[in-house]
């Protein structure tokens, strides 16, 4: 579904991704973990074509998007939904208008059908009676839920998450984790999550990939990673645990 082949990206003289290889399985939750400032967000933005690699290939459903023009890239992007770190809701629009935005842009649904879908998606993420509220009236956790509702509005095949639990208190973090797992089960979409929250990653992931110094250094199920005897993986997990889970990338 998603294949990253020898992706290299530098900003000025700093190499952020260094011949990175990663295959992401369809209809599963893959969590890419790494330290703050380690290039996780850059990697995620490569997958959806917001950043182009210096070299390497990004294959989405058999199409290499690394050199596509904007028009073709926009077509591929319709397969995606993305939840940003701070939800990135349009603050000039209501919650309902935010969730309706991709539907109005890319479908010919009637207003009634759009409203119905908006309510369905908001119910799916556990929100009711918020359609007329502005994003500024919502808590951090609620904003993320609305962001997720918007991300899945068009029933995308792939949903990307940029640090979904960062900045949330432990109870809300758990609640967002449960929401992600439940939503993936119902939508059967491919979820790609970047995080430095190792505990959260072990809870929700089908597969965990470890990003270190621009490369994926270990990939496996949570159990495989947790029980790994590799001293490097052990140290990596220890470092991430030490880093805490409230720091932003």
């Amino acid at each position: 579904m998603i294949n990253l082949i020898k992706i290299t990206k530098s900003f000025n003289t700093q190499k952020v991704l260094d011949e990175l290889d990663l295959n992401i399985d369809p209809e599963k939750i893959t969590v890419i973990i790494g330290q703050s400032g380690g290039g996780k967000s850059v990697l995620l933005k490569h997958i959806i074509g917001l950043i182009r690699p210096d070299s390497g290939q990004i294959i989405i459903d058999g199409i290499d998007i690394s050199n596509l023009n904007d028009k073709k890239l926009n077509e591929v992007r319709k397969k995606f939904g993305m939840l940003f770190q701070d939800a990135a809701l349009f603050d000039s629009m209501t919650v309902g208008e935010n969730v309706a935005f991709p539907l109005n842009e890319h479908t010919r649904l009637s207003k009634k059908e759009v409203n119905k879908t908006v309510n369905e998606k908001l119910n799916l993420v556990g929100l009711k009676n918020v359609t007329h509220k502005m994003p500024s009236e919502l808590s951090g956790g609620m904003r993320k839920r609305v962001g997720l509702a918007r991300a899945i509005a068009l029933d995308p095949k792939i949903v990307l998450f940029d640090e979904p639990t960062t900045g949330l208190d432990p109870i809300m973090r758990e609640s967002v984790d449960e929401l992600i797992v439940a939503t993936q089960k119902r939508t059967k979409a491919t979820f790609v999550i970047i995080s430095h929250d190792i505990e959260s990653a072990f809870t929700i992931a089908h597969k965990v990939a470890m990003l270190y110094q621009g490369k994926i250094v270990a990939v496996g199920t949570p159990d495989e990673i947790r029980s790994s005897n590799n001293s490097f993986v052990k140290r990596f997990i220890k470092d991430l645990r030490g880093q805490g889970s409230g720091i932003r990338d």
């Binding site: 959806i48 917001l50 992007r77 993305m82 990135a88 809701l89 349009f90 842009e105 990307l160």
Partner: peptide, 11 residues
């Protein structure tokens, strides 16, 4: 606040 990136991701 990444709203412009969000527009891009929504094609």
């Amino acid at each position: 606040t990444e709203q412009i990136d969000a527009l891009n991701t929504m094609s």
